[in-house]
């Protein structure tokens, strides 16, 4: 198995790691870098639990190889949240709107919603549903998740 030295900025810090060519980005993040907030729900690119940002774009970490992010910037849920535990507005809205139950899909949703709102700060209901349709949740029936995004759109304040 050939290995490659890659250099990638993860959550703002440059990391140089030696990886097998077949190592997935998700496994790089979880197993080699200890960033276990990125969850694996299907490893087929269908559930969105492993969503991360690569150069600001939402990608499925299970569908990319680690070698593909050589020279790139990767942001995981750990990089979106703050180290001191203060919730971002998206995270606070999920909590306030009961937008998570088991929490397994939540990191992927938070990543997706964060990117959505950066691109489109005032999505209408249809845009919200379309933007989130690639993230699966089995607990909430999406009710609280959609409500969380709507509350952000309408500018509701969320205390931490």
């Amino acid at each position: 198995m050939s290995e490659h030295e890659i250099s990638v900025v993860v959550n703002g810090a440059r990391r140089s790691v030696r990886v097998p060519s077949r190592l997935s980005l998700a496994d790089l993040l979880r197993d080699k870098l200890g960033l276990t907030g990125t969850h694996l729900g299907c490893e087929h690119g269908a559930c969105g639990a492993c969503s991360v940002l690569v150069n600001g774009e939402v990608v499925r970490a299970c569908l990319m190889f680690a070698v593909q992010v050589d020279g790139d910037e990767v942001t995981t849920i750990e990089g979106i949240g703050s180290e001191d535990g203060v919730l971002t507005p998206v995270q606070a809205a999920f909590r306030d709107c009961h937008g998570l139950q088991c929490g397994f899909c939540t990191p992927g949703f938070v990543v997706t919603v964060t990117a959505l709102l950066e691109r489109n700060p005032a999505p209408d209901d249809g845009e919200i549903r379309t933007a989130l349709s690639g993230n699966l949740c089995r607990c909430t029936g999406y009710q609280g998740i959609i409500e969380a995004v709507r509350s952000l759109r309408s500018g509701v304040e969320h205390a931490d």
Binding site: C42, H44, A46, C47, L132, S133, L136, Y142, Q143
Partner: peptide, 13 residues
Amino acid sequence: TFVDYLLPSTTDV
């Protein structure tokens, strides 16, 4: 896979 086994998504509910 979840491509063949279809769970409801935000656009279905």
